[in-house]
Amino acid sequence: MLAVLERPEVQSAVAPLVLSLLAGWGLFRWAPRYAGWAVVLGFVTTALLVNGLEFVPLTGARKIMLVVVLAAVAGIVLDRVQAPGQRRAALLGLMLVAYFWIAYRVLANTQGVALGLAIAGGVLYLAWLVLALDRMRENSAAALAVSLALAMGTSIISILGASALLGQLSAGLAAGAGALWLLTWRYSDFRFNLDLGLAVALGTGLLGLGAVLFAQLPWHALAVLALAPLVSLLPGVCRLPGWQQRVAYLLAALIVAGSAVAWVWSTLEDSSGLY
């Protein structure tokens, strides 16, 4: 049994998918407002299987694990803030604190243009994701599809960027989002709340940035992935029947994520060879 749980595909796909499906089913039945927490549970499942409960040394990846859970909690509170300006200011404040908490060690060792790019690129990427998913709360089908595509894309490009750990954590988010996406075929009245939005935005954003700052992922991969939220603007899709909307948004978002993956793959110096 324990040997099975050490397999990466079980840690980052099978286990979080199954647990998220079960949790999501229960939440849709008894606490539909919190159905999005099935995604957080998927992420936590992967984090526990990959990392356990060890937080020493407190690496950037471990900080991201904490941030995703805290973001979901903060999202519940911020979801109730009606004034858009106040809510966005709070979201951006949280995003800045999370980014600099996670990246300060790297930023302290970076200079010149690279430092400017790390600060500006990181803040812009995170702010874009956070504000885009906040805005997409009115379009739950698009928001969930974008969340799934962002998590899947971040997972694959992180692995290609030479960090299996960051890739596995993002895969946990993707498994959770995939489970929720499947459940929305049964529970079509799903509402994408800010607890899920903030957890996904900070989770996928920080994991992608981690793959750039801590590993070898090129920035252009995130630039492509950042286009995923734009699929919510596709004309005509929101007038389609529910299941067609879900499929159309997901396909469009996956095309964007796939483009990021393809670009990274094509720029790898040597894709062959096991070590």
């Binding site: 950037g60 960090s163 750990l165 590993a215 070590y275």
Partner: peptide, 21 residues
Amino acid sequence: GFIKRDDHLRSPDFFNVAEFP
């Protein structure tokens, strides 16, 4: 002796050199 493996060893999976140089 193998760049891809060395890149992986530098990543957060192993020595996490960006954070702990």
